[in-house]
Design a protein around this nucleic acid. Structure first.
Lengths: 230, 230
DNA sequence: GCCAATATTTAGGTACTCCTAAATTTCGTT
DNA sequence: AACGAAATTTAGGAGTACCTAAATATTGGC
């Protein structure tokens, strides 16, 4: 037995690996409609063969539906569990940043572990202590206690046309090194950016950020999500 | 794989069950000199046969020494790991109480899970945020970052002679129900108590607490640790 | 000094989560 | 329509941590 967390109120408890599967399946499904075995494996950094076995068990438990060779979709129950885990993660990230002065590039890894151990009671107290923020420090929306989430469809920097302006809304949070670099470039949620030019054939983008010029490659641009301005 | 926590600096990481074994062995050893298989099993609420297997592995890893049929003693390394886990637990308990207004009867269970997931970095930030307290909310001393702990040998209420006075220093924290009852009786760390009378044959103790009289049975008295006054 | 009660260990199993290697299925392209 | 590459699943294992039942060692009482 390796489970985790407090019972709090309802529902069974899930192991950390199960919660991790559901989280990444939620995320892939949102972007792609259904989660392929390979994508799940890659996101969890495990072998695809391992995913097949787990997917069967999760389907048996009613957390997802699986069409052989077709991929996986969460059931309502699976989505509820996924969103609860995502809420935990993001509340913890926000709390560590706001209440404990944790550096923003480190909160992801800490939250990745704590999210499986914290009770709902604790998560709610943390959220209350920092004024129930709507997003985590990287701009990701925090689901409500009831499992509602405001999922805006955002552009990435790479989707802007030359001459367009945008405001950074959210950045990918799972690579501390990359976050430090983004902070250095001042590409943080809330910052205004305009795309000056884009070199062809996957070349770098030239941005204007707070009056300075920045060169960023397409891989980096893809993880910086913006809303178009004007 | 089920491990946990951040690498922070040194040393390997240990699974949650390993940390739990080392914690209870530390505790039993302190009171009894060596930890018997049966006692470990009882404290962890698992079968004695399960302990035998784990003890062999912990001995192989150099965390403890085992004399067959004689019990178990932590090595310096094992003691270091145990004290680090105990520090985590008690810092978390103190933080939840002082920083998040967590009720004192619930912090134990929450800490029991978080102690295996929190990084040293987080523990140190929590401790700093509440002013590096010397004890947790139940009066248990918090080991330092370096693994030093001030282990006073305390009397239990049951050890007082009629007419003697004492001050509650520490209470056992692992039963929420019992903690709520102790709070009701005002038998909290810091409170002065005097033993008025003790009924024979395992009968109840009559106490005076803050001007009121209390009757407590010997089982409850045994978990309230005091220092003698005058 | 022996014997029964108690403590401990061994033997054999289960569940979870991961692995590699070897099928198998699907799909895009020719 | 068929073929080969890519994706997926099955088969067979390993490590952790637990279990019950059976064997074995120790110890206190007589």
């Amino acid at each position: 037995m390796t489970a985790g967390r407090a019972g709090m109120g309802v529902g069974p408890e899930y192991t950390a690996p199960v919660e991790d599967y559901l989280k990444v399946i939620y995320d892939i499904e949102r972007q792609a409609g259904a989660a392929a075995t390979n994508d799940i494996a890659q996101r969890l950094a495990i072998a695809p063969a391992s995913v097949s076995g787990m997917v069967r068990r999760l389907a048996d438990q009613g957390l997802l539906e699986h069409e052989r060779y077709r991929g996986v979709r969460l059931t309502d129950m699976g989505r509820r569990v996924a969103l609860r885990t995502i809420r935990r993660h993001r509340v913890i990230e926000a709390y560590l940043t706001l209440a404990l002065g944790y550096p923003w590039d480190l909160v992801h890894d800490e939250a990745e572990r704590l999210e499986h151990a914290a009770s709902d009671e604790l998560i709610d107290r943390m959220a209350a202590a920092i004024g129930e923020p709507a997003t985590d420090p990287h701009g990701a929306p925090i689901p409500t206690r009831e499992g509602e989430i405001e999922e805006r469809t955002l552009l990435s920097l790479a989707d802007l046309a030359p001459g367009e302006r945008g405001r950074v809304v959210r950045v990918s949070d799972d690579d501390a090194e990359r976050l430090r670099y983004l902070a250095e470039l001042e590409l943080l949620p809330g910052t205004e950016v305009s795309l000056l030019a884009r070199a062809p054939y996957g070349g770098p983008l030239t941005l204007s950020v707070r009056g300075g010029e920045r060169l960023v490659g397409p891989a980096l641009a893809a993880v910086v999500l913006v809303e178009r301005e004007e």
